[in-house]
Design a protein around this nucleic acid. Structure first.
Lengths: 334, 334
DNA sequence: TCTCCATTCTTAAACGTTTAAGTAAAAAAC
DNA sequence: GTTTTTTACTTAAACGTTTAAGAATGGAGA
């Protein structure tokens, strides 16, 4: 590997001069600068990030902690989409990402982050009560959290309250009043959505009927199907069922079909997430699409700004709205 | 951050002694060792990976280059699954992963890999003819390629030839002889699959009818639907259509339904990939499931062995078979 | 008693950078 | 023409580690 020394030798200048020339310091003459840069280019020089990190204490690496309910990691659609857009933004700014994990060498998350010397961390997590997660959040590192709010930390959250609100209002606008809701695992996200369900119904002047709610799980079509059957079996069954995610909604679709009913003719269905697949199946799913790209993008930009300019970056709580995708799974029954 | 120096001061020994004690060298007395380790633990010491990397030339970082047809990155189901299992294996061995990308600071892939000093690289790529990719593959770095074979490099490949073979034989065993095939973008993978299509038909004594083949694209249900319509419009239409992936198959399902036909009663359909979603939709898709977990796992283990013990690691081409998932989308027409 | 060796530690250099501080020469100021 | 300032460089230390080589100590062997 070609180092500063090689260039210095070739140009008959000191290593410091080369370093400063390449970093465009202004105490290097224009001719020298030009010459050094040409030679560097010719020799195929690239800095050694470890050496640079050691000296500057900045690695240009961002730690990523993503843990979902099912430990599905990168195969979790929502997280994958958030992370993908996050990564695209950080990359153009010269940051690489490093996954923070606790499995390696029995380090805690924070230890791992320190070990790798990441300049900042983004955290999207199912369990923000985890001691290790809290330690990381309360560390001296720049932190941005996703889908969870902490005091004195920047957070980017998908608007779950607004999402449920919009979705229910949309469904209601098509005449639905008995709206079932099969919801996901007990997390902050879920609690917000359920609360929003109650509040929106109240706002619409509808008395919530608890027999229309079922605690299910995320991304579990089987379970969703089971609860769908239960809802269908009720004497006064809902005209529309909401699901915690699109996969669950597909499970619901299957259960309904199995019961000899048709969506949306006999009963309506709405998902949540707006996954790619929800828009290519038949009937096309009516769902609430979280703006995962925007969430990832904002998280990345906020974190980078926080890293580069901690003083002037204000601690925002950024709410990212999504939008109702009008599919064909909710019928107008007015 | 606590460094070796802090421990050395506290223990009244030299820095070298601390380093050697923690790395379990055998020229340090047992008592000293014990004491140093206790203090290190108490102080919460963790090594600085940059400093270590600078000295040892090993970063315990593995470069990952994943580029798919649509630049979908982490949202590509197959790659995400491969990568996820890859990552799980590398993590327990103490390796983190770094995404190799060319966007950052106009570096080539190889330059980026050198910049970060990765110990090895895994490459899964759509375009193995790309100059930058070739440079990376021919570099001095330990390399494992996925789904593409290179001379003198370890490769792990999904058995596309066997996959198509098994899938077609299965379909044929249910009585299908006119088998349509809508295939993906022109890549090595596709060429293998198409070749296998021809060979398997020949093996079964069926004369291939080129009017049953359409060049489509991967993960493009719209396009797949269009070609499906074309196939359906033929006077002597196929009894079964194969698709390049499950998403495309879903597009096919929709086109067939739109044409007033039913799967599998009027026509059969088979996908490829075995995505989660293919098994929860209705009708459950008959598809060939690539063993992406196994591919990622083997790639990781091979690469780590190659990094740690280059001499004794033999340059394998590992073929990873998948399996036919019998869904309900291919009917027995015997 | 002297030599030799093993054990256990220290010294010091090195990895490739960055950067504060120093210096020499040229330019500007008077 | 001397002093001051500016320009353009160099020196040297530092970041936190690893490791080859050296050194001090004590015990064994003769």
């Amino acid at each position: 590997m070609v180092s500063l020394k090689d260039i210095a030798d070739k140009c008959s200048v000191s290593i410091a001069t080369v370093s400063k020339a390449l970093n465009d310091h202004d105490d290097i003459g224009p001719d020298t600068k030009k010459n050094i840069r040409e030679i560097a280019e010719k020799l195929g020089y690239f800095p050694n990030s470890s050496a640079r990190a050691l000296k500057t204490k900045r690695t240009n690496n961002i730690g990523v902690l993503f843990v979902d309910e099912g430990r599905s990691g990168l195969t979790h659609d929502y997280f994958a989409r958030v992370l993908d857009s996050f990564k695209r933004v950080t990359e153009v700014s010269g940051y690489d990402i490093t996954f923070i994990n606790a499995t390696s060498q029995k380090m805690t998350y924070l230890e791992h982050a320190h070990f790798r010397g990441v300049d900042g961390v983004v955290i999207a997590c199912v369990d923000f009560d985890d001691r290790d997660v809290i330690d990381l959040i309360n560390s001296d590192l720049p932190v941005v959290t996703i889908d969870h709010v902490f005091d004195n930390r920047i957070s980017v959250v998908s608007d779950n309250i607004g999402g449920m609100h919009d979705l229910i209002k949309y469904v209601h606008s098509l005449g639905h009043e008995r709206i079932g809701y099969i919801y996901g695992d007990d997390t902050a996200v879920t609690r917000n959505r359920v609360a929003s369900y109650y509040n929106t119904l109240k706002e619409l002047g509808i008395t919530a009927d608890d027999s229309l709610l079922c605690a299910s799980a995320y991304r579990n079509p089987k379970l969703a199907a089971k609860y769908t059957e239960q809802l269908l079996a009720q004497r006064n069954r809902p005209t529309c069922i909401l699901y915690p995610d699109d996969y669950s909604a597909i499970g619901g679709l299957n259960a309904i079909e199995k019961a000899g009913l048709s969506v949306p003719n006999d009963i309506s269905v709405a998902g949540y997430d707006g996954l790619y697949v929800s828009q290519i199946i038949h009937p096309k799913l009516t769902t609430y699409q979280q703006n995962s790209e925007e969430i990832g993008r904002i998280a990345a930009k906020s974190l980078i700004r926080l890293i580069r300019d901690p003083k002037s970056t204000l601690i925002d709580k950024i709410l990212v709205p999504g939008k109702v995708l009008e599919g064909a799974s909710v019928r107008d029954i007015k």
